[in-house]
Computed example of a mutant assay.
Amino acid sequence: MLTGTVKFFNESKGYGFIKDDETEKEIFVHITGLVDQIAQDDKVTYEVKEGKKGENAVNVRRA
């Protein structure tokens, strides 16, 4: 599992970005990839899956 911090998440639009702790790369996250509800600045664990427009965070859980 990868770890990161929620940089931005818009609940009404259903998407946001996670900043990876190790690489500091931003990963797109869609509401369908969430296990737990998340908010800005939450520490999370996640997996990466290739999507239509690049990498997406999936199985996102609060750490």
Results as ranks from 00 to 15, higher is better:
M1Q: 13
L2W: 12
L2M: 13
G4L: 09
T5V: 15
V6T: 05
V6M: 01
K7R: 13
F8E: 09
F9I: 05
F9G: 01
F9D: 00
N10T: 11
S12L: 14
S12R: 15
K13F: 00
G14D: 01
G16S: 00
F17H: 08
I18E: 00
I18F: 05
K19S: 08
K19Q: 14
D20W: 05
D21E: 14
D21S: 15
D21G: 09
E22A: 14
T23I: 05
T23C: 05
E24M: 07
E26P: 04
I27R: 02
V29Y: 02
I31P: 03
I31E: 10
I31T: 14
T32C: 10
G33K: 00
V35W: 03
V35I: 15
V35R: 09
D36I: 12
A39P: 01
A39V: 02
D41V: 02
K43L: 11
Y46V: 07
Y46N: 06
E50F: 02
G51M: 07
K53G: 06
G54K: 05
G54P: 04
E55I: 02
E55D: 08
N56L: 09
N56P: 03
N56H: 10
A57G: 03
V58G: 06
V58W: 06
V60G: 08
V60L: 08
V60W: 07
A63H: 12
A63F: 12
